[in-house]
Nucleic acid binder design. Sequence first.
DNA 1: CCGTATCCATTCCGATACTG
DNA 2: CAGTATCGGAATGGATACGG
Lengths: 149, 149
Amino acid sequence: MAKRRSLDTDPCPVARSLDVMGDRWALLIVRDAFDGMRRFGEFQKSLGVARNILADRLRRLVDAGVLETRPASDGTSYEEYVLSPKGQALFPVIVGLRQWGEAHLFGPQDARSVMLEQASGQPIQRLALLDKQGRPLGPDDVKVKKVER
Amino acid sequence: MAKRRSLDTDPCPVARSLDVMGDRWALLIVRDAFDGMRRFGEFQKSLGVARNILADRLRRLVDAGVLETRPASDGTSYEEYVLSPKGQALFPVIVGLRQWGEAHLFGPQDARSVMLEQASGQPIQRLALLDKQGRPLGPDDVKVKKVER
DNA sequence: CCGTATCCATTCCGATACTG
DNA sequence: CAGTATCGGAATGGATACGG
């Protein structure tokens, strides 16, 4: 009784995304992968997560097509975990969470250890929805359209 | 033993965001709030979640400052839950998850029941990071800068 | 170093009964 | 309708031992 209902067939794409990525570790693993981490031990050290949990989450992300495995580049017989194109497409989500956290979850005295900037050294202005003319949109400019198929 | 470690003082803003919003229901509640839902029963019906869980999650989101309560507008003695400015700032995160799900979690035969468009009726192009000139940036254009405080 | 297996505590979640 | 209280089962997470 009381089995956890999967959202993988939910009509809402937000729900389906959360079914895959909506737990404590998945998006942190993806964050680290964007940071260039590939090895089991790198993730484990960065996250401080138990190894059995990490192994389970990596497996799920591989099954979901977010990560891909490849033979270790250092000749050892282990795996490396790299973002697939599908995983790379999560970039805006990671940035959105980062900017929200920076703006609303740090006090004035609080240490900020990371911030985003362009590779050129310029700070990034913001994350935005663009219309076809490249103009940024706000919540009130957007509506959800119900579609039958 | 084995107590769950909180991430609310983690130096990474992504981790702090996930500490607040990184569970199965929080972002779905916020999604519904963006959709105009305010009442306990509306959320419950939309999510199908158990009422005790919903009550707990609403309380946490209020405590976190993501939602605010106000007296019911219909004269009843209950509460309404509306997004605070802090909660509204999650808009890009919701949109990012929505677009990722639309792009990668629906098969060709699969029903899409919702899609985003501008209030004007135009489809939205995409979610992007903007530099100061308003140009969209990709993952390779961005780096993380470590900052001491 | 990379995992897997096992054990145990905590947390999550659904069902249901109950209150105002 | 809007919650609260309680229960039991499932999932999560940490520690640790073990094997490749």
